Computed example of a mutant assay.
Amino acid sequence: MPAPLLLTPGPLTTTRTVKEAMLRDYGSRDGEFIAINTRMRARLAELVDAAGTHVAVPVQGSGTFAVEAMIGTLVPRTGRLLVLVNGAYGTRMVRIAEVAGRSVTSIETAENVPVSPAALDAALAADPDVTHVAVVQCETTAGLLNPVDEVARVTARHGRRLLIDAMSSFGALPLSRAAVPFEAVAASSNKCLQGAPGFGFVIVDRDALAAAAGNAHALTLDLHDQWRGFETNAQWRFTPPTHVIAAFGQALAEHEAEGGVEGRGRRYAANCRVLVDGMRALGFETLLPDAVQAPIIVTFRMPADPAFAFDRFYDGLRDRGFVIYPGKLTVADSFRMGCIGDLGPAHMSAALDAVKATLSAMGVASGRP
């Protein structure tokens, strides 16, 4: 049986050529592997229009490792972090700061409500001790797109520094240093850039990174030390995920061939439109209004039909070739379906056919909540 298609926020379905790039073994000190890393780091900074001011620093592990490295390295031990929270990933940044021993506070909104630049403005005016602000660009708890451009303007006006978790949006949604001034942005290899999971990266202001020596709370998560290693010999300090990096080099080439951020974002937006329109036609209701829905992952409310059971629905779709995601909300009983990966509108139409067949097999008349 062919592998099911992943309608998830990552790991996700990759191209055959990305998979094949992992078939070759590289020595971590080999010149060809070092060249892949050098090209990768340069391209990542270019993707956010930051090649002249920022450097890309990769970190072993999942995207959360990169977020923890970003917070632990850039927020000084005497600093204070303000996190804008409207989902699990904002909450996770608060916890990261607490574990790292950093002073942290938060402004919380509901999981289906964008973060508030006005509330941020008031909080920064009231608390001069805040040195850094952190926000999630696309909060995949609900699939919500936060107004990072407005958050950036408020943060800059108060002379504070912005840290962005762009894990689920980097490479598909616009993010330019010229329009969104940030000190650092964290993302990973296995989301919209369509690589394999295994490492994250932080694109960070060079001057801020140079000033961060000694800040980090963990040796392996020290971005400054990692950066100095790359600057010294272009090598990782510790054993890198060589196969994943080789695949990511291929994924970056395919991303550029598709038209970069604009091209990939256009395909994902088309996927999202097909999915949302088709699910609504079956009676399903989206948690979010279209105005704040990111074309990354869509949250649907659970059907009210007593014949519906999520486990059976999940298994039915899995048997028909599609893997979806359970909900992660506290505000509503829900499930999620992703729009990203090596998928196009035809795949989304096939997924809708699988949803129809599964509902019919379960005896569910409508997806209406």
Rank of each mutant, 00 (worst) to 15 (best):
F170S: 01
F170N: 00
F170Y: 06
G171S: 02
A172Q: 02
A172R: 03
L175C: 04
L175H: 09
R177W: 07
R177Y: 10
A178L: 13
E183T: 15
E183I: 14
E183W: 12
A184T: 01
A184S: 07
A186V: 03
A187F: 12
A187E: 00
A187V: 00
S189A: 07
S189M: 01
S189V: 00
K191H: 08
K191Y: 07
C192Q: 09
Q194P: 00
Q194D: 10
G195M: 06
G195F: 14
G195I: 03
A196V: 09
A196G: 05
P197R: 04
G198S: 04
F199C: 03
G200S: 07
F201N: 07
F201M: 08
F201K: 07
F201W: 10
V202F: 02
V204D: 06
D205N: 15
R206K: 13
R206F: 08
D207R: 13
D207G: 06
A208C: 14
A208L: 13
L209P: 07
L209G: 08
A212T: 00
A213S: 00
A213K: 00
A213E: 00
G214K: 03
N215Q: 01
H217Y: 04
H217M: 02
H217C: 02
H217G: 00
A218M: 11
L219V: 06
L219T: 06
T220I: 11
L221T: 13
L221N: 06
H224I: 00
D225R: 01
W227V: 05
G229P: 09
G229I: 09
F230S: 05
E231H: 09
T232V: 00
A234R: 15
A234Y: 14
Q235V: 15
W236Y: 11
R237L: 14
R237K: 11
F238E: 09
T239I: 00
T239Q: 01
T239R: 02
P240L: 06
P241A: 01
P241M: 02
P241H: 00
T242H: 03
V244D: 02
V244S: 03
A246L: 04
A246K: 01
A246H: 01
A247C: 02
A247I: 04
G249I: 13
Q250H: 06
A251T: 08
L252H: 14
L252V: 11
L252D: 14
A253Q: 13
E254T: 07
H255I: 12
H255D: 09
E256D: 05
E258H: 11
E258L: 13
E258G: 11
G259N: 08
G260Y: 14
G260F: 13
V261R: 04
R264G: 11
R264D: 14
R264C: 08
R267G: 09
R267Y: 05
R267F: 12
Y268C: 05
Y268P: 03
A270E: 13
A270C: 06
N271I: 02
N271Y: 02
C272E: 13
R273G: 12
V274C: 03
V276T: 15
V276E: 12
V276R: 15
D277E: 15
D277V: 09
G278T: 14
G278N: 13
M279F: 06
A281K: 06
A281P: 15
A281S: 15
L282N: 13
L282Y: 08
G283I: 06
F284Y: 09
